[in-house]
Structures are given as C-alpha cells and as structure tokens.
Write a protein that binds this DNA or RNA. Structure first.
Length: 577
RNA sequence: GCGCGGUUAGCUCAGCUGGAUAGAGCGUUGGCCUCCGGAGCCAAAGGCCACAGGUUCGAAUCCUGUACCGCGCACCA
C-alpha cells in the first residue's frame, strides 16, 4: 500500500486542537469536541468553534463564560490572526493571510492535495448488470455512484478492489438457450448480439404463454447447463462474452475500470457445500422443506419475521446464498477492512439479512456497508420493456454527446472537427454523469432528458469551463510546468478562494464517510463559482508583475484542486472546450 | 399489518454528526462583451422547511404522533 508523508494539518483540525488545549488549561473536561466549521457569513470570521456550548453543558457552566475562559487561554499560533466571541458562545477565528497562502501551496504540492492517507483495503461492488441484456439508464446510478466512491476511496489512500458482480447465472439462461436454438435470427445476432438476445428472450415469454412445454424445456436446459453440459456451457459463455464486449464499451466511455469481474456464476460450486455447513453448524435450519437462516428481534428490526432463504424446496440456491458465498470469498481472498455494496433501495432488506447472517457466522473481519440509492423511474411510472419506455445507456450517452456537439460547434468553431468531436463526447458524458451524482444518492429520481442534457448552471460543463479557463490563462501566460511558491492573498475574493481551495480534503473525507458523492459536487460547484468570479473581477495576465505572478499561482492551485475533484467524480477535465 | 425512505421557492433539488439572517440551478425581471474565453459575471422577485406537539441556549435537522407519496416483507434477483 502506498503511503506518503501526511499533508499539512488542516485549519479545522488545527483550530479544534487549539480549543482543546485552551479548554484543558482552563480546567474543563473536553472529551469530544466537534470540529471547527467554516462560518457561513464572512462577518463571523473564517472558521467557528461551537465547542463552548458542549463544554458548558458538560461542566454546568454558562457558555459565554466558557468561551471567554477558552479564548483567554488560547495558545498563540501563526495561523490565527484574530479571535472573537459572538452571540451565546460562538468562538470565531480569522486566519492569517500569509498562513493561508502557505497552507494552500503546501496542500497543492502534496500528491494527494493534503488528504490524510488512510490504511485499509476496501472491496466495492458496483454496476453489476445482467448478462444478455443491454445496460439502460437504470444502471447509471450504481455505475457512476460506485465509480465516484471507487475513485475517492482510492484517493484517500485505501487499497481498493472494484468488483463487478455481474448477473451471469440463473434460470434465464435455460430460456435463452431454448430460444437460441428455436428462433435465432443469425444475421441479426451478427449485427447486434445483445439486441437479438433480448428479442428472442422476449419472444420466449410470449410463446411460453401459448406453449407451456417451453417452460419445461427451459428448466431442462438450465439443469443441463448447471450440470456442465458442454454445448450449453459454450452458449452460456458466448452470451457472457458478447455482453461484456458491449458493457466494456460503455465502461470505456465512462472511464471505468474494474479490478475483477466475478459474476454470480463464479460462486456456483461453493453454494451447496456452504448450505450444508450452515446446516451442520446449526445456523441454518430446514423450514417447510427449504433451508433458512432464522433471526431474532435482536438481530435487527423486522428480521425476526423473515428468515433468510438459502435453499429452495427444490434444492436450488438463491440470490442470498450467492451473496453469502461471495462475502466469504472476498473475506478469504482479500481480507478487506470494508466491503461496500452499491445497489438500489429495494435491496435494503436483503442486505440487512445478509449482514445479520454474516454476523451470526462470525464473519465480522470486514465492515459491511450497503450504500443504497433511490429508484429511477420514468415520468409515466416504472421503466419496463413492456411499457416500451426503456432508455438504453448507450442511447443516452449518444444523445448527450450530440447535444453537446451542437454547443461546441457554436462556441468553438475555430477548433478542428476532430477536437470538437472529442470535446462533445467528454462534455456530454460528463453532463449525464454529473446530473446523477449531484443529487443526494438516496433520493428517488425521475428520468428527464432535459435534466440529463442541460449544459447550463450547476452542471459538469460549468465546472469544466472553469477548469479550461484556468488552463487557458496559464497557456497564455507561458506557463507549462509550475512549482508553487508561498504567497499571501490580497483581495477579498482571492482570500475567499484560497480558503475554499484548502477544503477539498475535508470534503472528500465527508463524501466517503457518508457515501455521498454529491457533497463533492456541491463543493466543486461553489468553488467553480468563486474561480469564475476571481478571473472575472481581477485581471491576471495584464496585471502588474507582482499581482500577475500571485494570481497565476492562485489559478494554478485552482486548476489542480478543481481538476482533481472532477477526476474523483469520474470526469476528465479538458484544457480547451 | 410490520419495516425502510420521502414531503424545503413556480419547477428540479442541496442543506454533513442540531448552530448565527433558509441555499442553488432552471424559469421570470433587470444590468454587464472596443476588457486574459459571455458554456460566464452582477442584481431583483419568489419560503408557515407537510401538519401538531416535545427535547434546549439554539430545530428544516433530534424524539413522538398525524396526513399524503414511494419501496420492501422466504422458495425472483
């Protein structure tokens, strides 16, 4: 695992430490202090500590008096220019300008932009589409949220294993095999494999209604497949292969790479032995001919009423069985400290069961996290092929790129056709991605073209534009490789921007810990607004030498922070657009 | 019935473990390109944070209840 020297101590953590020292010196107990936070209003200084309230309560004192006692004993520090007490006991800190500039430069020179590097190994399970079906907009959320968590977690120093747990096993393959042998259009398959697989599968469902024997045939083929029949296994492999080819094209457009693609089938051989061992150990029981893991009230809310089913009466394993085997495999192979599952809200109960089962089994080496997100629906309701309102992910990305192309042609006619095409692709895909990432993952969303295609306001292109402007200024200023030297912010907007730029690390930590990439989006949007105001209000290249040099420093730092933030979201920033 | 979410500006949504006067985008109205990129900047209007209680120095945020909406509750995944 890579490790780097820790970045400089951040302002909130420094202030909290000073407050703690002062509180102890004043004779208070100061166990758990809440970290200092940025003030909302510049009139209150740069950061505020609200610790006096908690200390006052714990020590049964007046908060204002506690604040006074703390401020009187606050150790002097180069970072702090002024301290004041406001209202019922807020302690407001104004930071030293030169320290701020030095702080920003120190962070920007750190390879991880000042982010404390954490230890540990994390498995992230995301995207996980089903084989023989096209990815549609419903897969967007798990894919882009998972990718953002993937990027952020790795940036924070964890060793990350991204595992795409594709749906490559199950009864649908028997149906596909029957349909394939029965009514495949070879030419159509040649031209568009997944499209044809989807068509013959849908056809199967229609024909099976009229001809019940088809279902029996499908069951028979599924059983043959599971027993290792060579012909059926060859077909099954082919279905996976053509599916992965298409998935990988989409992942390439989205800039996503998995470390492992271990689908459900990878655990097939582990399932029955696992069930047997759970029965033998008494964790699982036979119930109604099936095998279940029963729970009690103490295991979690609602669990007592619904045991986890791990073997059907007919002997077949289930989703939960596979997930148990998968968890076991991941624990054995990687010894992770955390496993994160990125799926939609409907699986919350399933993961409660899974996690409770792991706990019962003593599989507690890793923290198990279900990062769930809200449902995506269409304006007219649920998305379903029967309603014919399924939007393929590829079509969405194509449309977004086409939409962006029109704007690029209008804004940058001077660029080559080839470059405009590349920019349009990057901007369009980024816009789609950001539209999803910028909302709270747990909110349900209704798919709207308008939202996905918008290029104005709080969107990826807005952030990318800011970045491109910074790079453009540097190019015109003749700067290529740049080592930052400490500077002192002068103008208010410069000072405000400098402080904002030092906050990336705390934001990323909070986005990781809360599984909320939208926290990073919010921050970057605010940051880009400040950057735009900065170069709008202040001339850079045409300024007096000292100002020019300092402002180019601020622009460089802005580009580094904004560019890194975009990469964490999975968006590739462009030097020109 | 039980469980998990949700309800904030005309629309779409932020609001992190309670913090000072409730935020943004879109839309609406009005300004800014002889000036480093106007994909931008500045400003205005727009709110009983679903409702009712409670907790405390302080509640959109925590607790209880009510209303409405979404999702889930063993032999699908």
């Amino acid at each position: 695992m890579s490790s780097s020297p820790p970045g400089p101590q951040s302002a909130p953590s420094l202030i909290t430490q000073l407050v703690r020292e002062a509180a102890l010196a004043a004779g208070f107990t100061a166990e758990e202090l809440e970290p200092a936070a940025p003030t909302r209003d510049a009139a209150h200084g740069d950061y505020q500590s609200n610790s006096a309230f908690r200390i006052a309560k714990a020590n049964k004192q007046n908060p204002r008096a506690v604040a006074q006692a703390i401020v009187e004993r606050l150790p002097a520090h180069a970072a702090v220019r002024a301290v004041s007490i406001a209202g019922p006991g807020f302690i407001n800190f104004t930071l030293n300008d030169a320290w701020l500039g030095a702080q920003l430069v120190a962070q920007c020179e750190d390879p991880h932009l000042g982010l404390d590097q954490r230890q540990g190994r994390v498995v992230i399970d995301y995207s996980s589409p089903n084989v023989a079906k096209r990815m549609h907009v419903g897969h967007l959320r798990s894919t882009v949220i998972g990718a953002a968590l993937h990027n952020m977690t790795r940036f924070a120093g964890y060793e990350v294993i991204a595992d795409n747990h594709i749906g490559d096993w199950g009864t649908q393959f028997g149906k596909l095999i029957v349909a394939w042998r029965g009514w495949l259009d070879a030419e159509a398959y040649e031209a568009d494999p997944i499209g044809e697989l989807q068509r013959i599968y849908a056809d199967f469902e229609v024909r099976a209604e009229a001809d019940p024997s088809l279902a029996d045939q499908a069951r028979h083929e599924t059983a043959k497949l599971q027993a290792g029949d060579p012909d059926n296994r060859a077909l099954w492999r082919q279905f996976i292969e053509v599916s992965l080819q298409e998935f990988n094209q989409l992942y390439a457009r989205l800039g996503i790479q998995f470390d492992e693609v271990l689908g459900e089938s990878a655990y097939n051989d582990m399932l029955q032995p696992l069930v047997e061992s759970l029965l033998a150990s008494g964790v699982a029981q036979v119930s109604d001919g099936a095998v279940v893991i029963p729970f009690e009230d103490a295991d979690g809310p609602g669990l007592a009423k619904a045991p986890m089913l791990i073997r059907k009466r007919d002997g077949a394993a289930l989703y939960g069985t596979t997930d148990l085997a998968t968890a076991r495999y991941r624990l054995d192979r990687w010894s992770p400290s955390r496993i994160i599952y990125v799926t939609d809200t409907r699986q919350q109960f399933h993961f409660q069961q899974l996690f409770a089962a792991c706990k019962k089994l003593g599989w507690t080496q890793a923290e198990l996290v279900h990062c769930w997100f809200g449902l995506l629906s269409m304006p007219e309701g649920t998305m379903s092929s029967r309603k014919g309102n399924v939007i393929n992910l590829k079509d969405l990305l194509d449309e977004a790129a086409r939409h962006a192309r029109a704007l690029v042609d209008q804004k940058s006619p001077n660029l080559s056709d080839d470059e405009r095409a590349k920019i349009a692709e990057a901007v369009g895909v980024a816009a789609v991605r950001y539209a999803d990432l910028s909302q709270n993952p747990q909110s349900d969303v209704t798919f709207r073209w308008e939202k996905m295609l918008t290029l104005d306001g709080n969107t990826a292109p807005f952030l990318m534009y800011s970045y491109a402007r910074c790079r453009s200024l540097q190019a015109k200023g003749g700067i290529t490789a740049w080592t930052l030297a400490p500077f002192t912010p002068v103008e208010p907007v410069e000072r405000e921007l400098t402080i904002a730029l030092t906050r990336l690390n705390e934001i990323v930590v909070s986005a990781i810990d809360g599984s909320r990439p939208n926290a990073l989006c919010d921050y970057l949007f605010t940051l880009a607004g400040l950057i735009n105001r900065y170069y709008h209000d202040l001339p850079v290249l045409t300024a007096a030498p000292d100002d020019r040099d300092r402002r180019l420093h601020v622009i460089e730092a802005s580009a580094r922070v904004l560019g890194q933030g975009l990469k964490l979201l999975g968006i590739q920033p462009l030097d020109r657009m």
